[in-house]
Design a binder for these strands. Structure first.
Length: 507
RNA sequence: CGGGGCGUAGCUCAGCCUGGUAGAGCGCUGCGUUUGGGACGCAGAAGUCGUCAGUUCGAAUCUGGCCGCCCCGACCA
């Protein structure tokens, strides 16, 4: 076997989109279903989602939010209430128009067909997002300033009839959470929007090892119906941007449209200020594209379905049972260790398969730490440790006791490696740009990185540049501490400005 | 919704041009040899060739309708 052979074909450099599909397949994360645009999330992938859910949910609870659940079907009239919102989602809505099927025999073929019957007086839209139906509930629940703030989150599936689905990144049905809150004042609502934006930024960095640029969207890129949209933008390995999470200040747009009103401290009737914020299974696509390599998935330890996999090496029948026992005992001991408060997730792979096959399977699945234990190791009280953030050929023989001591620390190091690697890559691919010529020239290259420019152009000027180069302003960053220095004059208008824009191609 | 392509075994595909009733590789099952860098041998299971109709003695193969999927654009978490 030659050293340069990779587990995934093609490599990232050869064909990035195809590489992405192959990583998902090799890691057994998900597959396309028979239902158009929808995916089947398999256990190894769903495990990642469960961990993302648990860990985000703790953050939501810690910041005062409660979970609730609202209907999948939204009366069409609800969606119509906020004009901009309705228009923004119109082309992606799946609509339920009937509530019954009737069996009809086709006289030509003799086969029975099920025909939709019982047409509904008012069609339902399958939720593409739940602002309108949650807003209707809020209108009932909120009467007084004493009912505010109202801080609700729901874990749900939503449907957006996308024309070009892509596993995890863009599917017709996807899983997400959507927070919906109502507040007494504009300032409070904006503070909430920013708070959750900050939670997303931290979550991506501290749980998924993905550094993001946090910023505000321009008017062109805003959520339909929002006053302000904040985003966290991740750069993945083909230098494209992925909008990984958004948090919206909705102003009084929805509360006026749906009459979410309350009697204020001064006795007057006022409209609430609302927010909404969400992240989806797209996070899984983002982490795959951010970290994985030509040998497959690399999982950030905190969301790894299994963090440590133990492979028993059983070359001789007479020592086989002793090896298996030692592996189980080690797994049990490790499960009493914790990583960020959770017990270590450890799996012993006892399947009677060729050792190399099993090892490569776990490499492709991205398990952070692989342990091999054979008869010799039992004698020497050592374990063979291999890390997914290091070369496949690298291994170290460590005293078992020392490994048990340091296992969770090692997971922390792996997280750190992934984060530093991704940060270095991102920083190397964000270029400050002060001149329009350089700006135009930049986008002609293959896989161009992001540009960071002073910007004071109009909405129309932004759109023109976007169309010309198939790019968008990903965000207007909130902080410049992680970004290169630029001049102060807008690349297009030449006017002095303190606004900066990140431009890039996106998924 | 525009432009291109494709539906044959679980997966990837050959066979179609020139009609004669089903093939390969991988995967799967069993047995044996292997096992600390992706093993090998032997045996085996598995497909009403997307669907409906037409042409024909005979259709995976030719003709037409329908359905579905993929890629490239416009739209998007």
């Amino acid at each position: 076997m030659s050293a340069e052979k990779t587990a995934i074909t093609p490599t990232r450099n050869a064909d990035f989109p195809e590489w992405y599909q192959q990583v998902i397949k090799a890691a057994d994360l998900a597959e396309n279903s028979e239902t158009r645009g929808c995916m089947v999330i398999k256990p190894w992938g769903y495990g990642i989602w469960e961990l993302i859910q648990q860990q985000l949910d703790r953050r939501f609870k810690a910041t005062g939010h409660q979970n609730a659940y609202f209907p999948l079907l939204i009366p069409l009239s609800y969606l119509e209430k906020e004009a901009e919102h309705a228009e923004g989602f119109a082309t992606e809505c799946a609509v339920v128009t009937h509530h019954r099927l009737e069996a009809v025999k086709d006289p030509a073929t003799g086969k029975t067909k099920m025909i939709p019957a019982g047409e509904l007086a008012e069609p339902y839209v399958i939720r593409p997002t739940s602002e309108t139906i949650i807003g209707a509930a809020f209108a009932r629940w909120i009467e007084s300033y004493r009912d505010l703030p109202l801080l609700i989150n729901q874990w749900a599936n939503v449907m957006r009839w996308e024309m070009r689905p892509r596993l995890f990144l863009r599917t017709a049905e996807f899983l997400w959470q959507e927070g919906h809150t109502a507040h007494e004042t504009k300032d409070e609502a904006i503070a909430e929007t920013r708070l959750m934006h900050g939670q997303y930024e931290e979550f991506l960095r501290d749980h998924l090892a993905i550094p993001v640029i946090a910023g505000e969207k321009t008017e062109n890129e805003r959520f339909p119906g929002a006053e302000m949209t904040f985003t966290v933008e991740a750069m993945v390995q083909d230098r494209k941007a992925i909008q990984a999470g958004t948090s919206h200040y909705l102003g009084q747009n929805f509360s006026k449209a749906q009459n979410i009103s309350f009697t204020g401290r001064d006795g007057t009737v006022q409209h609430a200020h609302t927010t909404s914020w969400g992240v989806s299974t797209r996070l899984i696509g983002t982490l795959i594209m951010a970290h994985s390599d030509d040998d497959g998935l690399i999982l950030p330890p905190r969301v790894a379905t299994q963090q440590i996999v133990i492979l028993p090496i059983t070359p001789k029948e007479d020592s086989r049972q002793a090896v298996l026992d030692a592996c189980q005992a080690l797994a049990e001991t490790l499960r009493h260790q914790t990583f960020f408060g959770d017990p270590l997730r450890v799996h012993v792979d006892q399947r009677d398969l060729n050792g190399g096959v099993k090892k490569w399977e776990w490499i492709k699945k991205g398990v952070p730490i692989r342990i091999e234990i054979g008869p010799k190791d039992i004698e020497s009280r050592k374990v063979c440790v291999q890390r997914r953030d290091q070369a496949i050929s690298e291994k170290s023989f460590t005293d078992k006791a020392d490994f048990i001591q340091s296992a969770s620390e090692m997971l922390g190091e792996i997280h750190q490696t992934l984060l530093s690697r991704a940060t270095a890559f991102r920083d190397a691919n964000i270029t400050a740009c002060d001149h329009l010529d350089a700006f135009h020239a930049h986008w002609a290259g293959d896989n161009p990185g992001w540009l960071y420019t002073p910007w004071s152009g109009s909405r129309e000027q932004e759109e023109e540049l976007s169309k010309k180069h198939k790019i968008t302003i990903r965000c207007l960053p909130i902080s410049d501490t992680e970004l290169p220095a630029t001049g102060g004059k807008c690349i297009l208008t030449g006017q002095e400005t303190n606004i900066r824009a990140i431009w890039g191609r996106s998924y």
